[in-house]
Computed example of a mutant assay.
Amino acid sequence: MGVEIASHTVSHRFPHTWWSTASYQDYVEEAVGMRDKLTSESGVPTQDIKGFRVPFLQLGTDSMYGALYDNKFQYDSSMFTGAQWEGESDPVWPFTLDYVPGQTFCQHGPCPNKQYPGLWEIPVQRWYGLDGHSCAMPDGCSATGDAEETLEYLKSNFRRYYNSNRAPLGVFMHARWFTSEHTLEGLDMFIDYLLTLEDVYIVTPSQVIAWMKNPTPLSKINSFAAWSCDGAANDVWLDEKK
């Protein structure tokens, strides 16, 4: 139905520091192993599992990126980036690892020291709470009191992107964020707000990459195949009938 499933890891093991020193083979077993399980146990086509995120955003230097590159992952989404304080710099666009990323793009190592041509990075960018403090993901900032505050929190972070360089805003969150009912209501209100903007689209990481490879103006976006939803619901209905 247009929902993209990416790989995480088989074990999600503790302590978080284990991932910083895990071997190349460890990452193959964890990242590729999870991809294989998604296919064998959940029926997700292997070719559709294009991305990966490491637990705790704890990078594993070239052991991790080498395993992803050799096993044909299209993108990683584990690098933590963004200014410490809101307004200090513009958001970061996704980028490829054709070059070794510097501190601006990879703030929480150990970072890769080699090049991985064609492997994309969808950065995990800092969010900023209404109290001004930053966090890695939306559910990490200070809790909001009601749906209206949640809406304003989401809109204020969105405006940083919309009013600057228009980099994609990654809304990456853990399921625990929805333990408070008002957060889901606030998110629904935020989506309703986005739907009023004719130049804003809610897309997957793979669709972001597809657009960056082939930038398409709004005047032609309705014919941009990578963003089409045609047939998705029908495919699911047919599968259920089988």
Rank of each mutant, 00 (worst) to 15 (best):
S89V: 01
L68Q: 06
A143R: 07
F80N: 10
M173P: 02
R35V: 07
W18F: 13
V3G: 04
A136K: 10
E121Q: 11
G109W: 07
V124N: 12
S142R: 08
I202E: 02
E198W: 10
G109P: 12
Q58E: 08
V208S: 04
V44L: 14
Y99E: 15
G118T: 08
L68R: 00
A167I: 03
Y153F: 13
N113I: 04
S23M: 02
G82W: 03
K114H: 11
R13V: 11
P101S: 06
T81R: 05
T39E: 15
A31H: 04
S89P: 01
R160D: 10
G118C: 05
S89G: 07
I202R: 08
E4A: 05
D62V: 06
S11N: 15
Y69I: 03
S156M: 05
C229K: 14
L195K: 13
G231Y: 10
G140I: 00
L59D: 09
V171G: 01
K114V: 00
F178K: 00
S11Y: 13
G140S: 09
W19Q: 02
S23R: 01
I209N: 14
P123K: 07
W93T: 05
S40W: 04
I49A: 07
P117E: 12
S11W: 13
D139P: 02
P205C: 04
G66H: 10
A210I: 12
A147P: 13
E152H: 05
L38G: 03
T81I: 02
Y116M: 09
H16E: 13
G102M: 00
A225W: 09
I209A: 12
R166C: 13
S78A: 01
V54D: 06
V10H: 05
V100E: 07
T81C: 15
P112F: 02
D239R: 11
S40H: 09
H174L: 03
S78P: 14
R166D: 07
R126T: 07
R35Y: 06
G2E: 11
G145K: 14
E30Y: 05
W211N: 10
P15N: 10
Y116D: 14
P217F: 02
H174S: 12
Q47F: 09
D26S: 11
M1V: 09
F52G: 10
F190V: 08
R53Y: 03
W177Q: 13
Q25F: 07
L194E: 13
